[in-house]
Nucleic acid binder design. Structure first.
Length: 466
RNA sequence: GGCCCCGUCGUCUAGUGGCCUAGGACGCAGCCCUCUCAAGGCUGAGAUCGCGGGUUCGAAUCCCGCCGGGGCUACCA
């Protein structure tokens, strides 16, 4: 077969701009991008903005921002155009209308004049009689007269709907259990299960990779594609859901971890988040856990994707993020730290970076370690002996060159003189400088502070005037 | 309720009939290193493989039932 006979791979994500950039969108984008790159295909970003009530244009920008931050960039989308433009569903209304008209003309769909109240009554009655609800088809069989507001319903043809899921294999659904569903709302906008397959078909999407919550939607969408006479995507893949800590579904209210941009704010590295996300639902079958994106493109496969949902675990994310931070060059770390330390100049951040590297699991942790550089700590109460050692240190430090090695040397002379362990001298100094019992090594802790500031903090607790 | 998906250490998972006295990672505990904290190294605790029946010489792995969790069942996507 000639190369041109084989349709090149086209995948897509279809986020809805109804709130903050969603973690699930990132996860979905990741798998789609990996698949696209592995097959030299195109990655399409389509905006599913057919919910007039909840949709806000500014949220679209937030989605772009989140995806760009992660480096999950798309080849075609509303902002870049492409061969199957437009990529915003609100700009494709004519396409949905044409297709709906065709379905109605061919008897594959029909207008429904039922009111919300009537539908609700149907549903309640079914529930009371303990039988599964399916639309009664009243408007197909015996439509009410004299009404003008209508929706369009798809006439479910019946029979089994079969398709291939790249993760679960052959799937089969009995469409006799599915009622005629609405494809065009009374506000003339299409519903998700109608617009999505029309777009997938007209955008020549070859593989649909999305969250497991869409598995049961697939037969609906396939019936639409079939009725329209379009070729179906070659295959689907439904990725396991990301669950909350307690195994429940995440909700925007209770689970801030759904907000993609939160990870940037807290100082997670985009590469690390991606690495964590891919491990939440897939594993390589080896003990390797840290992967670059290019490695993922080479080794990822759907047959090793998990079938069940996975719980989100901050501890593991923090560990992975720490691994990435430790692997960073000092310059790189310093550069990434900058937005988190606006109080410090670049030179100070660069000097702090090496000592910070093994002590933070996310960039924002640096703040707690360095805030003594811009805030004056509460002086500790020291006993006479400790104050004496600080006094000795003060004297030794006065003439020392202000860099870690020289400071260390000067301090060790004080330690030797004291005849005690180093901590007996270092801890009071540490507390005088930072107000805390924890800090990077004492020589670094001192060197990061301007010499005069450091000495005056020591003098203050040593009971001598500086 | 109906349909669908899933069920191995606390969590993410390896495992596709004998190599499993169930392996790894995170987390946790201890030790080493060490000026504190980390990082790093070593050691350890932690899973009767959801439960009950089968099939088989042999089952985490195959079959059935049950229970549990999740998804869909909207003029949300």
């Amino acid at each position: 077969m000639a190369v041109s006979d084989r349709p090149s791979v086209r995948v897509r994500i279809a986020p809805s701009p109804t709130g903050f950039a969603h973690l699930g969108t990132a996860s979905s984008a990741l798998y789609n991008l990996i698949f696209a790159r592995a097959h030299d295909g195109a990655f399409v970003l389509r905006v599913d903005d057919t919910d007039v009530e909840r949709n806000r244009p500014e949220y679209e920008q937030v989605i772009y921002e989140g995806l760009h931050w992660l480096g999950l960039d798309w080849d075609e989308g509303p902002d870049k155009g492409g061969p199957t433009a437009p990529y915003r569903q609100s700009e494709r209304l004519d396409i949905y209308k044409e297709h709906a008209a065709r379905l109605i003309a061919e008897g594959k769909a029909y207008r429904c004049y039922c009111t919300a109240e009537e539908l609700d009554a149907e549903r309640k009655q079914a529930q009371a009689e303990k039988r599964p609800y399916k639309y009664s088809r009243r408007c197909l069989l015996n439509p009410p007269e004299g009404r003008s507001e209508f929706t369009v319903r798809f006439k479910v043809p019946g029979g089994d709907v079969k398709f291939t899921d790249m993760i679960r294999g052959e799937m089969s659904f009995d469409s006799a259990l599915i009622g005629d569903f609405i494809i065009v709302k009374s506000d003339t906008y299409p519903t998700y299960n109608y617009a999505s397959p029309v777009d997938d078909a007209t955008m020549n999407i070859t593989h649909v990779i999305r969250g497991e919550e869409h598995l049961s939607n697939t037969p609906y969408q396939l019936m639409v594609i079939d009725a329209l006479g379009y070729a179906r995507p070659q295959a689907y893949a439904h990725m396991p859901l990301i669950l909350a800590n307690d195994g429940s579904k995440m909700s925007k209210r209770k689970h801030p971890e759904l907000n993609l941009l939160l990870y940037r704010e807290q100082g997670y590295l985009p590469e690390a988040l991606i690495n964590y996300l891919v491990l939440l639902g897939w594993n390589p079958g080896t003990s390797q856990e840290i992967f670059s994106f290019d490695e993922l493109v080479k080794i990822f496969s759907f047959d090793r994707v998990q079938h069940g949902g996975a719980r989100f675990d901050w501890d593991k994310l923090n560990w992975i993020n720490g691994e990435y931070i430790r692997a960073l060059g000092d310059d790189d770390l310093a550069r990434r730290l900058r937005p988190f330390l606006p109080q410090l100049d670049e030179a100070t951040i660069e000097r702090a970076a090496p000592a910070l590297k093994t002590r933070i699991s996310k960039l924002s942790d640096a703040v707690g370690l360095l805030d003594y550089l811009w805030t004056d700590p509460l002086p500790p109460a020291l006993d006479a002996d400790a104050a004496g050692r600080v006094r000795d240190a003060l004297a030794a430090l006065r003439d020392a060159e202000w860099e870690p090695a020289a400071i260390h040397e000067a301090l060790m002379r004080v330690v030797e003189k004291s005849g005690l362990g180093p901590n007996k001298t270092f801890m009071p100094i540490r507390q005088a400088l930072t107000g805390k019992k924890i800090s990077p090594p004492i020589d670094y802790t001192l060197a990061l502070l301007p010499k005069d500031v450091a000495l005056s903090r020591l003098a203050r607790v040593a009971g001598v005037s500086d």
